[in-house]
Simulated assay, not measured.
Amino acid sequence: MMVSMVPPQPPAPPYDLPLNTTMQTVATLVLWAGTAALVIHGARMARSERSPFPLFLVLAVAAGSVIEPIYDITYHLHWLDAGEQWTLFTSFGLPQPVWVMPAYVMVFGLPALVLYRSLSENATMGRIFKLGALTTLTTAIFEITAINLDLYVYYGESPWRVFDYPLFIAFMEGAQITGFAVLCAVIRLKTTDVRHQLVVFALFPANFAYDVIGAGFPTLILQNSSPDPNGGLLFASAFVSVALAATALWWSGRLLLATQDAAADATRRPPVAARPAAPDAVTA
């Protein structure tokens, strides 16, 4: 007798849940307006700094928002649709709402644009982690609001749920948001060639994957192991993921502090003394 062995499948998204079309309109208008304002502000900063980097930063986050479907698959996020979503693009079979790009710019790009200059001038590990705590809080507020206004849901088993939001994710994204601002400060300190500043377009998605996917891997593996993963293991794994995210933020912070120390040493180093001129040759 042949026995068919079907591997366990992760939970399916709740495709039948309705979208709040009123809030879709509000989110689209508010977030795109905020993004336009941030682009203008970035352009003004670029003019005052005589460097295109502030504008590059905003545009890099906008371009990097196309990484969202990878996040959606791994973290079980479903954008409510029911045939009424205004779609920006589709990847992995997942339609992305028209406001996902400006949401990235406002949630991830705005803090980096506000913070990177001051971090490049005066950063301490204590300040970096305080900013990480603040961005964790603001991320949780943003996501809990969006979820409870029926714009998207996290489906399946997830640990630390508060108002239907897996709260551990806020710590992952807080580390990612703050870490990106820190690494932008490193770019400001180390680059003199405009072409080198274009690395920020690779840096944003790389840092996103580093902090959110990389540090989150213990919980993500368990979440996607079966439709009904062990709740106790998931709860414990979230602590491991948050600890890894904190470690990643610490590493980024150490990189910035080392870069600042090197810049300060270069400033304090006395100039190389001029080599004395060779004496005139003795003529016969």
Rank of each mutant, 00 (worst) to 15 (best):
S4L: 11
M5C: 02
P11Y: 04
P18D: 08
V26E: 07
A27R: 08
A27I: 01
V30G: 10
V30I: 15
G34I: 09
V39Q: 08
A46P: 15
A46E: 14
A46G: 14
S48I: 05
S51Q: 10
G64N: 07
E68I: 15
T74L: 15
Y75N: 11
G83H: 08
E84Y: 06
Q85E: 09
W86N: 05
F89E: 09
F92Q: 06
G93T: 09
P97C: 04
V98H: 01
G109D: 09
Y116Q: 10
E121G: 04
T135Q: 11
T136K: 04
T136W: 10
L137G: 04
L137Q: 00
T145W: 15
N148M: 13
D150W: 06
L151M: 15
Y155E: 08
F163S: 10
P166V: 08
F168P: 00
A170C: 01
F171E: 00
E173C: 00
G179L: 06
A181W: 05
V182E: 09
I187H: 13
T192Q: 13
H196I: 01
H196Q: 13
L198M: 13
V200T: 14
A206P: 05
A206D: 05
A209Q: 03
I213M: 15
L220T: 00
I221A: 01
I221S: 00
Q223Y: 01
S226Q: 00
D228F: 00
D228T: 03
P229N: 00
F235G: 13
S237P: 07
F239W: 14
L244C: 06
W251Y: 11
S252T: 11
L257G: 04
L257P: 07
L257T: 09
A264T: 07
T267C: 02
V272S: 09
A274C: 00
A278M: 12
T283Y: 02
